Computed example of a mutant assay.
Amino acid sequence: MPSSPASPAPPVAEVIASSTREILAEVYPDAEVPAFGSWIEVETEGIDGRGGAVLYGLVSHAETGSVEPGRQAVALGADYDRDRLRREMPQLLELIRTTVRAQVLAYWDGQSQREGRPHVRQTLPPRPAALHDRVRPCAPEAVAAIAAPFDVLRTLARSPDPAVPADDLIAAALRGLYKSHGEGPDGEAVLVAAGRALARLMDDDHERLQSILRRVE
């Protein structure tokens, strides 16, 4: 398998539902919940059992609630903090789960290379992730590969998740792109290029564009 952009980080969640457009994953109890607007990846298995694709998604929603459908948690009172809850009522924590939803925006097919680097395609994958595939936070190198012409921004602007404020998610995606390039001159150059791409997508709606860019700072 060619050099992969897949993250060496340990998995933080597991796929419990998926489509070519989105991933729903349950976060492991002791893992850090992926932040809104952060990039996650899922390395899938190929049809022949060998390496498959790496799917990239932008976290658009996180939710914590009861494991049992229709059963809502109740307040325990001001005397309880999380440490005391772990000591005295650990069984309650077993009834709580956190899930994250991510909009799939790009993938690497496991083979394609460009200039000696994996070529990440900014489009929907041909197949969804499988149930119980592991979810990892993206390595900065993988996020940095999502560059001009920024087709992922077109998807976010023109085909957003209807349950998510699109502009907030775009702003978070821009922050991720900036940080992946080191938050220096390289990051600023990428941010300028992405801003220009957004201006074209938004039909020169400068007020909306400025609103998004203000949230990046």
Rank of each mutant, 00 (worst) to 15 (best):
E26G: 05
L213R: 05
A13E: 12
E43Y: 00
G77N: 15
A17S: 12
P11I: 02
D133C: 05
A142H: 01
D81N: 13
S159F: 14
I170W: 03
R117H: 03
E207I: 11
W39P: 00
A13Y: 06
V192H: 13
P162F: 08
V27Q: 06
P29E: 02
G52R: 05
A194E: 09
P29A: 04
E115Y: 12
G49C: 12
P149H: 14
S211N: 10
D186E: 15
D186T: 10
I40E: 00
V120W: 03
A157M: 12
C138V: 11
G195Y: 11
G176Q: 08
I170E: 03
D161N: 13
A193F: 08
Y80L: 09
H132G: 07
G182C: 11
V100Q: 06
I40P: 04
A25V: 00
L24V: 14
L95A: 03
S66G: 10
E183W: 00
P69K: 05
E14M: 10
D48R: 15
W39D: 09
G37F: 00
P69I: 02
E26W: 01
I96D: 13
P69A: 01
L124S: 05
R71C: 07
S112W: 11
Q72L: 05
A197E: 09
T99C: 13
H61F: 13
S18W: 06
S112E: 04
E22N: 06
V120M: 07
D167A: 04
A25D: 00
A25P: 03
P8V: 12
Y56W: 06
R208C: 06
E41L: 13
H119E: 00
D186A: 15
A171Y: 03
L169N: 06
L198A: 06
A17M: 12
A144W: 14
R114V: 08
S3Q: 11
D186H: 07
A148N: 09
